[in-house]
Design a protein around this nucleic acid. Structure first.
Lengths: 233, 233
DNA sequence: ACAAAAGTGTTCAATTTACACCCATGG
DNA sequence: CCATGGGTGTAAATTGAACACTTTTGT
């Protein structure tokens, strides 16, 4: 047995769940109901259960917190593991953080055990989170920003069908920049299997209707779409 | 206490330690002396101790396995965490893997408790490792390959002073490609603070002496040096 | 007709690739 | 003087940024 003279500890799984609402990047946070950090905001999470895989635990928490069944279509990837001895005042807790990307979904009020879970603009909670969750959020944001450069992840932020303008607004919200709509359009339509036309189109309040697309099978972007690229129009 | 009705488990730290020897990429492996997987090769690692930080545990294992003190100059970064319930037949063990990059150092025979630790060409051990260490190695290799594109990590594979040809051979060994020496030379000398001339030079067996360089302060490469780039001469 | 958003064409600059050519040394 | 690896020059091809301009709708 490996446990004879070695440390036994609790393993938590914490989630950075991101979405774009009203053209701004939001993260799902919960208000803490117990000590420590009572009343403060924190990332949703929970403890690993007997016989449970790490990713399965993350999926379970994701479902519980968002109150949604469609979680299988979200993006979920391991972010990093945080194990500073003093990170939790209750005792030794090592936390495996996951990054989840969700489309713009209904506010998770009615959901299951969602203890005051709600979407908050990342700009408002940065620096106000319990434990070391500020650091975890920061790492999650950097990972998401990087993923948008090299993978087709941005389309996961959109629903089942979206316009190129919707997709561009995701890039702008996550990166905090503006992009040239004309060059952006060419870049994404020029990358094979990134987005596929549905045939339909959608009219905005005013202006020419935009073609609708859905996710294609591509996972990586070649060539990548880099930040520090062309500033906006 | 968070541990009341939750799973307690052992946390291991495993290491993917890479170096380049004789123009080939090598990984440090140990021959297992106990069950399970007795006699098989595995990645070096050990269990987390009371009050010990994850990265500190990785540094401790790195020193123990290589038998070297100069470990502080190595590169050490967290890779990923592996927690499948059945990954260790002895019981529930979650492992945090770290990636270490070492210069070409003396064989770690004499070192401390090094239980048959030795360098093995990655091509020879891939698929022959105990536990899920094949997967961990594979993830570590991909991370290292990617790091060479966007960071100055390659210089860590070299010693305190090296020629541009040495540095190029690192890229070729890690990526398994050949690169044009002339364009490569310009790329690295054109990236500010990547490498700094020492003023000395070193003569090869035959041919013009090459200028010697040392690591510069830069951490990231802009522009990056991409794989799938120009094939060799 | 006009405002607004979608999308195309085109130009100029920066970067990358390929390779001819020169440099410095040991045998 | 020749083989070998180090290093520079340079032209062609590719890519990327910038932006004028056309398209298509609602009011």
């Amino acid at each position: 047995m490996p446990s004879r003279d070695h440390l036994l500890l609790n393993l938590a799984v914490d989630l950075v769940i991101l979405t774009v609402r009203e053209d701004k990047l939001h993260v799902l946070v919960v208000e803490r109901g117990h000590e420590p950090y009572t009343g403060q905001l924190a990332l949703p999470g929970g403890f690993l259960r007997q016989g449970e895989d790490l990713k399965a635990a993350a999926e379970r928490e994701l479902e519980e917190e968002t109150g949604l069944k469609s979680v299988r279509h979200f993006h979920l990837e391991q972010l990093a593991t945080y194990g500073e001895p003093e990170r939790d005042p209750r005792g030794r807790v090592v936390s495996v953080a996951y990054l989840a990307i969700a489309p713009n979904l209904p506010v998770p009020t009615a959901g299951s055990d969602a203890r005051a879970a709600h979407w908050a603009p990342v700009a408002e909670v940065s620096g106000a989170l319990a434990f070391d969750h500020g650091r975890i959020l920061s790492d999650g944001l950097e990972r998401a920003r990087s993923r948008l450069e090299y993978t087709t992840l941005a389309a996961v932020f959109c629903g089942s069908s979206f316009t190129i303008g919707d997709l561009r607004k995701v890039y702008e919200a996550v990166w905090g920049t503006t992009l040239d709509p004309r060059n952006f359009s060419r870049k994404v339509t020029g990358t094979k299997d990134f987005i596929l036309p549905t045939g339909d189109s959608r009219a905005p309040d005013t202006g020419r209707p935009a073609a609708l697309y859905r996710r294609g099978p591509a996972q990586t972007l070649y060539p990548p779409i880099l930040r520090n690229g062309s500033s906006g129009s």
